[in-house]
Structures are given as C-alpha cells and as structure tokens.
Design a protein around this nucleic acid. Sequence first.
DNA 1: ACGTTTGTTAACTAAATGGTTAAACTAATT
DNA 2: AATTAGTTTAACCATTTAGTTAACAAACGT
Lengths: 211, 211
Amino acid sequence: MVKLISLYMNLKKHSSTESNILNAAKEIFERKGMAAARMQEIADEAGINKAMLHYYYRSKQLLFEAVFKKAFSTLAPQLNDIINADNSLFDKIKNFTHNYITFIIKHPYLPNFIIQELNRNPEFIEKQLSNKLPNIEKFRNQIENAVKDGHIRPIKAEHLFINIIALNIFPFIASPLLKGFLKVDKTTFKELMEERKTEVVDFILNSIKIK
Amino acid sequence: MVKLISLYMNLKKHSSTESNILNAAKEIFERKGMAAARMQEIADEAGINKAMLHYYYRSKQLLFEAVFKKAFSTLAPQLNDIINADNSLFDKIKNFTHNYITFIIKHPYLPNFIIQELNRNPEFIEKQLSNKLPNIEKFRNQIENAVKDGHIRPIKAEHLFINIIALNIFPFIASPLLKGFLKVDKTTFKELMEERKTEVVDFILNSIKIK
DNA sequence: ACGTTTGTTAACTAAATGGTTAAACTAATT
DNA sequence: AATTAGTTTAACCATTTAGTTAACAAACGT
C-alpha cells in the first residue's frame, strides 16, 4: 500500500514537472519558433531550473520535436475524423469549416507554428509524421463520385481539398497582413473570422454545387 | 571629367557591394528567417567580410529591415496595380490569380517570409509599411456594385478579398504540409500549382457569379 | 532507520554569434 | 610622390546560449 502511494507520488511529481515543461515549451515555441525560443525562457515559463529541461528532454531539438509532434497530433486526427466520417460530402465541408475555425480561434498560434517549422524542415513530415498523416482516399472517392453523379461540377479532389484548407486556415496564418490590408482592428477581424464559419461553407458550396 | 569617372567608379564599387549584401541577406533571411539567419552566413553567401555587413547596414536588425521592406515592396505594388486597374471585377480576379501564381512560382520563399516575420512582429506593418499598403477601396466599391447590380451573389468585400488571397497564396506557404497530406512529390505538386492558375479563377467565379 | 534511486538546483563551461577595431588597401586628387 | 577618403580584411571582444556537473533534497525499497 505504501509502495503504491509512493509510486504514485513519484509518478505525479515526475509527470507533473515533465508536462509543465512541455506546456511551457509549447507556449514559447509556438510564439517564437524554434530558432528564436530560448531554453531559459522556457524554464522561466515553467517556473523551474533550466537543467530540468535537459534532464527530461536531453536537448532543445528533442524538446522541440516533442512539442511539435504533440501539436501536430492535435490537428491531424481531427482532420482525419472529419474527412473519414460516414456522412455526405457537403456535411463534411460544413463540419470541417465549423470545427476547424472554432478550434483555431482557441489555438491561434498552432497552424502558423506547424507550417512555419515544416517549411524550415520539410523532411520532418516524412521522417517523423508519416504515421500521423490523415488518409484522404475516402474523401477523394467521395469527390470523384459526386462529380460522376453530377452533384458537383468537375473538380480534381486535390484542388478541392487544397481550397477547403486554404479558405479555412489562411486567414489565421496571415492575420497581421490581412488586418493591414483591410485596415480593420483586432475586434473587427475576430468578427470576420466568426462570420467565416458560415461564409466559407457558402463560398465553397456555391462554387461546386450544380444548380 | 576624371573626377566624374572616379566618382562613378567609387559609386559602382560601393553600390555593388551594398547590393551584393542585400541580395545575399535576402537569400538567407528568406530561407531561414530573422532568428535563424547568421551574419557570417550572409557574408559567406555574398563572398565578403562580415564587417562589411555592419559597415553598410549597421546591425542585423537594420539589414533585416532593409531586406523585408524590399520584399514587401515587390509584392504590395503588384497587388495594388491589379486591384486598382481600370477593368472589370472578373478580369481583376483572373489577372490577380494568373500574375500572382506566376510570380510566386518564381519567388517561392517570399510569401512565407513576409507572413512569418509579420507574425513575429505584427507592429511592423503599421510602423514601417503603412505607406506601402495597397488601397482596396476601389475594389471594395466594385464588389459592392456588382452585388447591387445582381452580377454576383451577396458577399462582403472583405470575405471575397480574403478568399482570393487565401486560394492563391496558401498552397505555397503550406506546400510541405500539403505535399504530405496529398502524398504527392515535388513535380506533381508543381503541376498542381500550374493548374491552379485557371482552377482558382473557375472556383471563385463559379462561387460568386449568378447563373 | 538507512542506503539507494530519482528529482532539483546553482554554478559552471564551451561554443556560437553580433558587433568592433585597427591596420591595410584602393583609387582619385593635388 | 604625398595626401586623402572611402573600402576591405583579420583579429578581437563581449554577450548570449545550449548544455554539463556536482552537490543537495526528496522519496523510495528494504
């Protein structure tokens, strides 16, 4: 019994520090990127000694990879679930748009972080993340069938897929630029993003539906 | 006369080194970003001594700002010209799509560079670039009139503007991610980007045109 | 209770990096 | 030929930063 309790205490201490580090690292890496992030700043954010980062994660690179994989693992399975759900193409587009915009509003740094670091290190996606990539075959078939059955105009699955993701994610990645171009403040921009939950769906469906 | 020639020679030497530095800095900053770029690497790329970077540009920050402003100044006026041209809304969309995709294929690091650094430093766009921002008022009026006249379905100018930019630029920013998702290689991806010169126009016009 | 393992810290180290300097070089001027 | 001004370089400096270490603390097994 004592054994169990002490084991539990240790485990708790251990994993609490370890996950504190991971959370702090997530904050700093997402805000600043791998290159600009400082190990000391992560330690400060976690409220612990810098040596602990190395004790639990060995190096900055490995800590970064742990953060990155976790970030990727929160985004990719969601995408996978949506596009492989057992519903219609139109419902998938509605779900994707609504769920993803809602999710990203809560985690605004995430998409930019992932895209940024993948650009600096494109091999990473094959070497480390290939098992986490969503499977789009079902979605592709669904699009091809919809074209064949005359429900939507002819369009390559690849392009429709790219378009859906672009319309949903780009505004969050490019928000400083778009705010500048459109001359709108933070609040107005947020309202625009809320509107997009329906606007993007309309835009896509209007484009592909045969009326 | 001799005076003129020597002045010219001096000027040429001066400005050639200065622009060599700027070009080298552009390469490195665009590939690696401000934080990961190294002054020594820029000097090596330019084939000169590192002290020259400081001789001509004082500091890394100022060199970076010179590069960034130049990059921004190649993208923004193009956008401005297209959306303020004296032609129809549909032609603008066609021109924008075709010209921008062509341009970005030649400068693949540019959009990502700009968006990335603006995310790390959002004040920059107001403090340093406000005079270089394109004016979208004419474009906005054109959209509003097209809605009023029943040429296109009702859509906020902001959303249409965001959608056009998103569909055109996002695939280049997110290319490593999209290559991974779609499981296509570099060559196939390039072909897809070529196709988008017409595909994106079709997608947008199909969405907004009233048939 | 007592040695052992695990977790934590402050101080330290080595390397990298932005920036400086003083001397050398170039080319025009007188 | 001597002077001057701008340009370029090698060597140097100060600081930052990832990573280590050695000593200390806490929790564990027996």
